[in-house]
Design a protein around this nucleic acid. Structure first.
Lengths: 361, 361
DNA sequence: ATTAGCACTCATAAATAACGAGTGCTAATA
DNA sequence: TATTAGCACTCGTTATTTATGAGTGCTAAT
């Protein structure tokens, strides 16, 4: 009994190692165990596993290997004398193997861009992308819209609502339409406003909101040709564009997660409620990955937020031209079908990039 | 034993009646039972109930009364030898009593309009109303936005995007801003478009979208002063305003419902998922109540939709001026704290009406 | 009409037992 | 030396049993 707790007895050679490279066989077995667990959701035991996967090994040997993998931190037992389930590290190993063999140039997904094509309104596109992600993956789909700051202005128009209230409309190359009411302290006529509109469109067109706010306004004000009229036009534009900095987050398909028994399991449910309640959590996580290249996977604790546990996130940035502007992703349980979700997210990211790039010509 | 099933024995006088008016005492007791059940969520038994509410009655008498109330359809037993819980009819009786004594002119709710005031953008108002409803009630808040069709146009502006693509902007009195891209088959200049804008604003201002679509366009086309230019302007407006018919539904606070044990209880969970998944269910229910006056309460089966069970809906329409245009509401379990929710919904409905009316001047 | 008394019901919880898939360790085997 | 058969042991799961107690309906007395 006390000897039990001491170590492996005969297998003392690898006794207490906690870090080493897995050999071919161990690697294959670990991946199969994770795969099996993802499929069944039940702790994987030696006997049935050996049988199901037709390893030419006895259960006893399998147990020894599992023991090693546990020692190395890839597996764990929910309780003594249960089978093994993957740890975050185990999932990570599995996912890395997956990504190594993953040919991102080939997808036989059944999505095609038609889904998006018919939507001309940009915010409708965001909705249908998240919806599609959640429907195909059967988990929750998320999308972080581009920061308006990064989109390039195409046109500014000011129209009069009241004698001292105007509506500023800014259209971006991607077709996003920003509108904002501005209250003026002086009275202006619609004709003057039309003048301002032309002036502003001429000066601001082709620059991103970011650039405009950072420097263009300053340059314009410094211009010697400047007049009080132009000053006023700039004032209006500056007021209107001041608060356009936020990108928005879209989440769809939470109901899919509620259909997964292990997510509703009391302790995990809270994670879910937090995600629904505070979308900002997900938002800030996605924001970190806008700038990174290619697909990223966060497993369990790797989502570095104590309010979200037992979840994984597969995410991909998307670009307009060469500039990464936003990110999409799928949220599911740690025990997620990565093999299916990874290509989905990867492909969708590329499709969105292509679409937005084309839209902004 | 067999006599048990036959009737009341000594109480034969009321033996098999299924419909009659409750006397004072029965009424008070029924209401107290429903109240007690709403508070505790546990079947109400005669002994503890008599004690807690200090009725000067013995448990046995209470049992007789409960027996009668059950016969009359107000109460039921989850199983033999359990206490009683209200049926839908029981809740209905309770709620009716509540509404009889309800003075809608007095609220000591702690909400004031400041919450909405700072929001100028209309769609932000919808969001903050639903959020507020869900936060105060601790259930789910819903809001049906006005059908754009009912809102009155204030201004139309057309601006050029490409040589053959224009953006039509319509501003309503309530401050809603509708934008829609229209592709033309002919080329026009911005100057012409400005002309069109003035013409359209002059002709359409003051009419609701509904009126405009139904008759104004027709009248304008019939006008003898009509010209090809004006025809084109009308074409553009008609295209742009064609598809603005839908009101949208906002739901917030589903997470509150997930926190209620009885809602997550397997069988009920599906109701919830349906609500999340198909917002149209709720939408069509609310739409039925836009035109009705004052607060409406739907209890359990009264929500006539087989996909939603075990839920109640408290709803109130809201108006712009005298015209009912939308509805707000709270969704919760049948066992809902009606006493708190009714004034909340009532008051909020009035506040929203006031705000929107003022906004549209 | 009300109530005390009583036998009966039944959900809930706790205790017990049987099952079986799983484990780790030892000793034999290729 | 790696593999495997064998075995005692663990422990979650399921089924069975056994209280417990709040509740009931009915009868008979007040």
């Amino acid at each position: 009994m006390s000897a039990n707790k001491q170590g492996r007895g005969l297998r003392v050679p690898n006794g207490f190692e906690t870090e080493r490279i897995l050999d071919e066989r161990e690697s294959a077995i670990l991946n199969s165990i994770v795969y099996e667990y993802i499929e069944t959701g039940k702790a994987v035991g030696s006997r049935s596993f050996v049988q199901k996967y037709s390893f030419s090994l006895s259960p006893a040997t399998m147990r020894n290997i599992m023991y090693d993998l546990e020692r190395l931190g890839y597996l764990m037992q929910p309780h003594t004398s249960a089978g093994r389930i993957p740890t975050d590290k185990g999932y990570r190993y599995y996912v890395n193997s997956l990504l190594e063999n993953y040919d991102s140039s080939f997808h036989d997904m059944e999505i095609d861009e038609k889904i998006f094509q018919k939507e001309l309104q940009l915010d409708k596109i965001f909705e249908s992308v998240t919806r599609m992600l959640s429907m195909v993956s059967r988990y929750a789909g998320v999308m972080l819209s581009p920061k308006p700051d990064f989109t390039v202005l195409k046109l500014v128009e000011i129209i009069q609502l009241e004698s001292s209230e105007v509506l500023v409309i800014a259209v971006t190359r991607t077709g996003m339409i920003l509108t904002r009411k501005v209250t003026l302290s002086v009275r202006v006529t619609q004709d003057e406003l039309s003048e301002y509109s032309k002036y502003l469109t001429g000066e601001l067109c082709g620059y991103s909101l970011q650039e405009i706010k950072d420097s263009i306004f300053g340059e314009l004000r410094g211009d010697r040709k400047s007049s009080t009229n132009r000053e006023l036009a700039i004032d209006i534009a500056q007021l209107a564009l001041a608060e356009t900095g936020e990108s928005s987050i879209n989440i769809d398909g939470i109901e899919n997660l509620l259909r997964i028994p292990e997510m509703v399991e009391e302790s995990r449910l809270n994670s879910l409620l937090n995600i629904i309640e505070e979308k900002n959590i997900i938002k800030s996580i996605l924001e970190k990955h806008v700038e990174s290249e290619g697909i990223k996977i966060l497993i369990g604790e790797e989502i570095d937020n104590e309010k979200v546990t037992g979840c994984s996130l597969v995410t991909s940035p998307y670009k307009i031209g060469n500039k990464p502007v936003g990110a999409i992703g799928v949220i599911g349980p740690t025990r997620m079908d990565y093999e299916k979700v990874v290509p989905l997210v990867d492909y969708t990211g590329k499709a969105v990039s292509g679409l937005l790039t084309r839209m902004s010509k």
